[in-house]
Amino acid sequence: MKTGTAILHKKRGLRDRFEVMDFIILVILVIWAIAIIIPFISVIAISFATPQEYLESKLLLFPTRPTLSNYETLFADGRILVGYRTTLIILLIGVPINMFLTTSVAYALSRGHFPLKKFFLYAILFTMLFNGGIVPLYLLMMELHLTNSIWSVILAYGVNTFYMIIMRSYFQSLPDSLIESAQLDGAGEWTILFRIILPLSMPIIATVTLFYSVDRWNEWFNAMIFLRSNNMIPLQLVLRSMVLEATAQRTMMASSAAISQSMFSDGLKMAAVIVTMLPIMCVFPFLQKYFVKGILIGAVKA
């Protein structure tokens, strides 16, 4: 019934003439979209531009003489490769650990009653309200002798309680009879989790894996505090140090020769921005629906 009226409504809506109101709304939204897109176009253009063109052009949105020299300088520098390597290590070791911890806790807490269940659940939820903050965490890492080890960054972000709750509520929505019949067949909890629950939960597994992957890709604060060595800097921090370096250069030097030097560093900076966000840019169109699904499951719960 409801879908029927919705279709009717849609049909009538399409037959309506294009009102002034439609036009105004569309203009506002398109301006907003342009305000989001223009910075990206500008960044791409600068990264492919020569310093001369960047200096001369009044509004650079499309380089007339595109060059790869900024990218060549960037990769010759080597830091960006260290960044990629570190971030990939953190992601490839970190995300499986995140998923293992999150899934096992979420499944255990979705099971029926067992002694101390409430205690564990509330102890976990409490961490969403109250935490020690960064200083005690730093001292803890020092006392565990994990500072300057990649494990400090990997272990500091183990379970995101919010994702765990999303997953738990998904597991709870699965019919109990599945688990009961498997138990009658003599399957243990781990077998049930891996053989029955996980295959049925692929949408939520995919969503949470994506959330963790994006978090890991964008992670920098813990690394900035825990890691000191120069050959273990995640990509985000490499970008940050390059941006800061270029800004410092610009304020220090004032001669005209130095200006063209700093313009060139703008090209290098923007090339670094592109290289850092490229993976997210590439996967976003395909994965957008999972992200949206994830936040909606969360929104229904929260």
Binding site: I124, G132, P136, L137, L140, L155, G158
Partner: peptide, 12 residues
């Protein structure tokens, strides 16, 4: 994990 990396800092 929660005991070490969430409650540890709380004790800290």
């Amino acid at each position: 994990w929660y005991a070490i990396f969430a409650y540890g800092p709380m004790y800290g």
